[in-house]
Nucleic acid binder design. Structure first.
Lengths: 190, 190
DNA sequence: CCCTCAAGTGAGTAATCAACCAGCCACAGT
DNA sequence: ACTGTGGCTGGTTGATTACTCACTTGAGGG
């Protein structure tokens, strides 16, 4: 397919790389860095396993790209949230971002899962740790700057985000028990 | 098998099982369920890989035992904290438990790491999810009952706990940057 | 019609994994 | 001294893994 009208045309190899990236999020979401095979990634992208290695130098580079991509998507969605904030007070902006995040993780919960797995892999994979740190750093600074919230408010925002991870992993919102209700109280999910 | 003289004496096989359990925490802490081999577990316990399979039916059962054990240790340490609380108001008790937890994860940070990995493995391993749910449930109910805190207070307690996971994974307390200070603010570490 | 070149694959390889088995060895009971 | 038993291991297996390479296919240009 020739470039036709689009000016910023990617080469087809780069297109492939991007589709692999998108589908690989779904693959890594289930069992993380160690538990996901390059064969599964290939299958989810509809290409041969060998071709994964033409597009990415190795499994690690692939995973790093996936992690970076998912951090970027999260920040995008936070930005969408800001646009819908009811006011410009920190509380309004933070609330709107929380809402946007809640929408995101119910629409594409794979992003949430990849972030969890990245956090785990960061423990003993230095390259993952570096990317993870940068991702967290950028997100924290973004939230701080766009909301103008205090240190405590920003910290609280991320503490609630982490609580979401726990709620999802323990499937607390599918369970009707006091402990589950206590953990998920006030956490919106759509 | 005769009980010999001591009634409280464990059979040596069960002793072994317990030492394997303790050392396996360290092994799984690094790379989690999928990334840790039974050979590594054996090495950390100083036994042969084959003997791991005499003590535990399979890798999954071993990991489940490790997860359960680490949840139990966490609750133990929370209980220790309660004993040192300055008063009996929910705030006092919760603060004391937070302090005990902070001590625990700096003395044996492998526990924290195993909990993180269990949380990740819970996503796609039903057996792990079950054990993880039970562990979280018991801990939440323990914190609630012993502190007498409100739903919000208990939730807040666990949100801060989860924030600790993030801080550890991102090594935020080793980093001198605004984002890192914002995340770790008020989180005690010894 | 042939050449080129990039996209894409089938069939491997060497390494590693969980799990198993046959048996060694120290020691307790007789 | 003989024997059984439980703790423990070396050696192995079949499956799976990350990664490689020789090869095919198809489009475009001269």
């Amino acid at each position: 397919m020739p470039a036709a009208s689009s000016e910023r045309r990617l080469s087809t190899a780069e297109e492939r790389r991007e589709t692999v990236l998108r589908t690989a999020i779904g693959a890594f979401a289930a069992r993380g860095y160690y538990g996901t095979t390059t064969g599964e990634v290939a299958k989810s992208a509809g290409i041969s396993q060998a071709y994964v290695y033409r597009l990415f130098p190795d499994k690690e580079a692939l995973f790093l790209a996936v992690v970076e991509h998912s951090f970027a998507r999260v920040r995008e969605s936070l930005a969408d949230g800001v646009a819908e904030a009811k006011g410009s007070a920190p509380e309004d902006v933070l609330y709107a971002m929380g809402d946007a995040y809640a929408h995101l993780i119910s629409a594409e919960n794979t992003l949430l899962l990849v972030q969890m797995h990245a956090q785990c892999a960061a423990i003993s994979e230095p390259a993952v740790r570096e990317v993870f740190q940068r991702g967290v750093a950028r997100t924290v600074e973004y939230v701080r700057s766009v909301s103008g919230g205090s240190e405590e408010q920003v910290q609280q925002f991320f503490a609630m985000g982490m609580l979401c991870h726990l709620v999802v992993a323990a499937q607390a919102d599918d369970i009707d028990a006091p402990w589950a209700r206590t953990l998920s109280k006030g956490i919106r999910h759509y």
